[in-house]
Design a protein around this nucleic acid. Sequence first.
DNA 1: AATAGTTTCATACAATTGTTTGAAACGCAA
DNA 2: TTGCGTTTCAAACAATTGTATGAAACTATT
Lengths: 223, 223
Amino acid sequence: MATDQTRTAILIAAERLYAERGFSDVTLRDIVAEANVNLAAVNYHFGSKDELIAELFVTRSIALNRERLRELRAAEDAGGGRADISDILRALVGPILRGCLGPENQRSAVAQFMIRASIESVPPIRRIKNKEIDHLRKFAAAMKRALPESSEVDLFWGLHFALAMAHHTIRESERLTKLSDGRCDLDDVEDVIARVVRGAVLGLTTRVPAAKSQAKVAAREAR
Amino acid sequence: MATDQTRTAILIAAERLYAERGFSDVTLRDIVAEANVNLAAVNYHFGSKDELIAELFVTRSIALNRERLRELRAAEDAGGGRADISDILRALVGPILRGCLGPENQRSAVAQFMIRASIESVPPIRRIKNKEIDHLRKFAAAMKRALPESSEVDLFWGLHFALAMAHHTIRESERLTKLSDGRCDLDDVEDVIARVVRGAVLGLTTRVPAAKSQAKVAAREAR
DNA sequence: AATAGTTTCATACAATTGTTTGAAACGCAA
DNA sequence: TTGCGTTTCAAACAATTGTATGAAACTATT
């Protein structure tokens, strides 16, 4: 076995292609061509295409979650067990944003693969995905420690919205660039992270905005 | 021609199936079975599978955008040409959220289809999608009228984040329900809309939150 | 060197896909 | 009714997919 060259060559090629083009567009023949191995190698080493995808997803999930938790713990340690809410959310969205945005050549296939996995819900991945909820619960718990007076429902919504802004920014970065004529700089990753975190934190910490909309006014007058 | 029964039966069946299961999982044979028509009917009436998808997307895009603009105009008229920022964003995210959330039997295949189209970027749709940017610009312009003192970059980010929260909520509604043990009520559509709008508006209207995070503190101390 | 186990390879297989074909059925004006 | 354009249908087609096979090549232990 030694280095298992073929196996790892397949993994690398598959991750690269899946990250770039999505699962449905990439065939086994594409992968083996990219990896310079024989077609039968995939079934020999992984059993099936689905098992290859599943192994890839599990491995990368663990890596991403570990990095998130590492940053979360660093933040909590720095705060003596209670992290600032901004830092908690930064630990949640920072790793994936850093991996998927910024100059093209610096993006990580790992992070892009994970985004693909969250978009195209292919059967082998769907079966595993429940694990992620346990992972998010840890962040929800940390948020509760940071904002003990907030309702749990609001905390879940804040967590959810933070992920929403991060993922959507990755998925639609091109559109935002076009829409803004390039004025929104998606390559300034730390600025993007700051915007996402700020948006989520504002929703969590601002009390009763009291901005009455026209709709509310109209609804009141209708009574 | 008269009613073109077969044609519309195909459109309805295709929209339903695509909305439910996504483009890559639905074959022409699935569609014709659901529509109770012959396999060759799709190619006869639409030319190809891609043209069927394209026609579906164009039609539905126009319908969704029209509804959004209708609500936007209603809000601007009510405010004498300048709508409240909340109402602008509500016009943007309301239609799609109302169509995709709420009790199962009330959801519209149209709205769900549009979400599918925004997730699985299949070639025939990708070619048309640029039109959507022009549509979003109208909302950006309305936002500028509502908040003339805000920077354009911030406005674009606010628009982007509003769509992010709306779309992500639709896509991950099941996960949020599980994560929160059912405490986040995704069936209360108007509450969801209010949360999304509030989150986006806060980001747009709150000035200098001045919440210093541990990361910033640490960075300062490191100097 | 001989052998046993592992890995690679070209090739074939069965299933599924979108599309095409040509005849049959239909609708309807003359 | 006749005739003609339109629509439907069963069947076949070509291409692509993941997977399986059996022989060849390789590796390493005896």
